[in-house]
């Protein structure tokens, strides 16, 4: 049987565009993955927004505001890109609020101290960057273009986080302990962000064949660990994994077992903040309703004046 135009394009590493023919499974996989990605950016504003009013200096407050604003922007780029597949923004928001669509589980952990804001930028954004750099080469054109734009903006996020952690690590014993404590709590959830091991990830193979995903969960995770461990060592912090050791044969770090039970618990709604995150999203959405109504009423009024 001759290849379809779709398969030809995939084989030749050409991008699939919104009006091109594509298999239903390709479309639905993209909608699931891209909307989850967009929701993660939006929900991700909450743990960080929690610290805007308590940032320790005007400088750090301005930076954190800019970062949270970027996250909103990234969410919107991704919603836009996802809408090209035939789902509306309204549907996506409904699916988020009813729990049908997921967002990254990492945002169901609380931000207890200022050091957590550092850990989020350094580790959570660091892990996201590894994933997103790989997704720049995804086969769906609008997704790829959104990723390229997001990656350009994201590297400031990781640096601001690492700077916060470095400052604390150079501070008093108590401040250094605060940095270490944040690393202890965020390390494992960060490396879980790459998802289940390849052998347990049933959707991965298809996504790799369709070139939606370009690298497997395990290889992305390994690349993040290899980059990040030396960054911790450089500032005198210890990664909370007793089995972590450099392997000269593989040129990678070997690391301990991941607690997948915790991962699935948090995915399935039993994390510390799952309920709070969605409640807050609904509240903000509902409280903004009058603004959207007023904007539409105002534009209709202007339009009617022109007609009359």
């Amino acid at each position: 049987m001759p290849n379809s135009i779709f398969e030809d394009k995939i084989n030749k590493d050409l991008k699939i565009e919104p009006r091109d023919e594509m298999p239903d499974g390709y479309r639905s996989h993209l909608i699931r993955q891209m909307s989850q990605h967009a929701h993660s950016e939006i929900i991700g504003m909450q743990p960080e927004g929690n610290w805007i009013t308590r940032a320790p200096s005007l400088r750090s407050k301005m930076i954190l505001l800019a970062k949270v604003q970027d996250e909103a922007g990234h969410g919107l780029y991704l919603y836009s890109a996802c809408e090209t597949l035939g789902i509306t923004r309204k549907q996506m928001i409904e699916e988020l609020q009813t729990g049908k669509a997921k967002y990254s589980s990492i945002f169901n952990y609380p931000t207890l101290t200022w050091a957590d804001i550092g850990a989020i930028g350094w580790l959570v954004d660091g892990a996201a960057i590894v994933n997103q750099v790989s997704l720049q080469k995804t086969s769906y054109g609008p997704y790829s273009r959104a990723m390229i734009k997001i990656c350009k903006e994201e590297s400031f996020h990781q640096r601001q986080g690492y700077e916060i952690i470095c400052t604390l690590a150079k501070g008093t014993d108590e401040q250094k302990q605060m940095a270490q404590d944040a690393l202890n709590r965020w390390w494992w959830p960060s490396i879980m962000m790459f998802g289940p091991h390849d052998k347990d990830s049933n959707r991965s193979e298809k996504a790799l064949n369709w070139k939606i995903k370009r690298e497997s969960n395990d290889s992305l995770r390994q690349s993040f660990i290899d980059k990040t461990v030396p960054q911790a060592e450089l500032i005198g912090l210890k990664v909370p994994d007793d089995k972590l050791i450099w392997n000269e044969k593989t040129n990678h770090y070997d690391f301990g077992d991941i607690d997948w039970e915790e991962f699935w618990n948090v995915v399935n709604g039993k994390g510390l903040c799952n309920k709070e995150r969605i409640e807050h999203h609904k509240k903000a959405h509902n409280e903004g309703e009058w603004v959207r109504k007023a904007a539409v009423a105002y534009s209709e009024k202007k339009l009617n004046k022109k007609v009359a």
Binding site: L76, Y298, S299
Partner: peptide
Amino acid sequence: VGNVHASDSEM
């Protein structure tokens, strides 16, 4: 570069 949702051209 992409799109936006808005009620009128100014917004």
